[in-house]
């Protein structure tokens, strides 16, 4: 149990959970006043639109090109230049938003949800539960994710090899994998690892926070564990969580680049920013546009996420009002 040192409730500064509007509505209002955050949000919205409506926005198809125009430099004909097959780079970046944004958002969402819940439980209850849960995290950290990814890839792409052709679940997942250009296994790889650091982060902060007076006060007041975690602790550790996660989004996108670099990437001709960077970096000195523009797309996305993240952090900070 939590050690309660002082039983006398001398009205500690319990953060009021949001006045009459409620914590989230209140936060949203403050977020809307933050110009940078709004700008970040708009950029992200545009990216999402670009991803969904890529066929209408992109000047050309992602697989469409003429060999005679290969490595064309940026200019009138190709705004951002063309790649080795003479395919329009701008169009490929726009289509690439689909894979890269999905990987980033899915990674961050998985990490935050699993990590926050797991870490909160582990840190809040402490003791034996904490020990078991954290040893499991150690174990997951140690697992060679790459092996797992290769294995999953085999199941999806050549199920006859491992004799699971008739399994309806695998079959259904293969269809999904196919539909998204063979990136399903990337999600699984990210899902197995991304939440680990997050859960340790949350747990570490809770270990410190739960000893503070407002938690004790809430306990004395008879609040349930869930209420303490969600109402009192969550707002206090959300800042670093949001910052860490917005910064990890490029990591997930880069993991995809890494995988395509070592040979486990998305199936061509489907473009992805990570894949484009890993394809273009070798030609950096001859055709700088091949790596420059995808990297810029990545940076802009990251800036947008960060501004939004910072705004969210400020908006949700219980003491900032």
């Amino acid at each position: 149990m939590l050690p309660l040192r002082r039983q006398t409730a001398e009205a500690p500064t319990v953060p009021r959970a949001g006045g009459h509007r409620g914590i989230w509505a209140d936060a949203a209002l403050r977020l809307a006043k933050n110009k940078l955050a709004v700008a970040g949000g708009i950029i992200l919205l545009l990216l999402v639109i670009a991803a969904i409506f890529a066929p209408f926005i992109a000047p050309k198809g992602y697989a469409e090109g003429s060999l005679e125009q290969n490595y064309a430099t940026p200019g009138k004909r190709y705004l951002l230049g063309a790649d080795f097959m003479g395919r329009d780079l701008l169009s490929r970046i726009i289509y690439g938003t689909r894979v890269s944004l999905t990987v980033g958002v899915v990674g961050a969402t998985l990490a935050t949800i699993i990590g926050v819940i797991y870490g909160s439980i582990s840190g809040f209850y402490g003791g034996r539960i904490d020990n078991w849960m954290m040893r499991f995290v150690d174990l997951m950290y140690g697992l060679p994710t790459l092996l797992l990814i290769i294995l999953i890839m085999v199941y999806f792409r050549s199920s006859s090899l491992v004799g699971v052709e008739s399994n309806p679940v695998i079959k259904a997942l293969s269809v999904i994998d196919d539909a998204i250009g063979g990136m399903f296994f990337i999600f699984i790889g990210i899902a197995t690892t991304s939440w680990l650091t997050m859960s340790r982060l949350v747990r570490g902060m809770i270990l410190s926070l739960k000893e503070q007076q407002f938690v004790e006060a809430a306990l004395v007041a008879g609040a349930s564990d869930f209420r303490i975690m969600s109402r009192h602790l969550l707002p206090n550790f959300l800042g670093p969580v949001i910052v860490a996660e917005t910064l990890n989004i490029p990591n997930y996108i880069i993991i995809e680049a890494f995988l395509s670099f070592i040979g486990l990437g998305v199936n061509p001709p489907m473009p992805s920013w990570g894949g484009m960077i890993s394809e273009g970096f070798r030609g950096m000195r001859s055709y700088p546009h091949l790596v420059l523009f995808p990297a810029m797309a990545l940076s802009i996305t990251l800036l947008a996420f960060n501004f939004l993240g910072d705004g969210l952090r400020d908006a949700l900070d219980p003491r900032m009002r």
Partner: peptide, 17 residues
């Protein structure tokens, strides 16, 4: 449809199916 496989998996695929 273009599909890529990790090298050793690829060899195995060639030999079996």
């Amino acid at each position: 449809k273009i599909v890529n496989q990790e090298f050793r998996v690829y060899l195995q695929t060639l030999h079996t199916d």
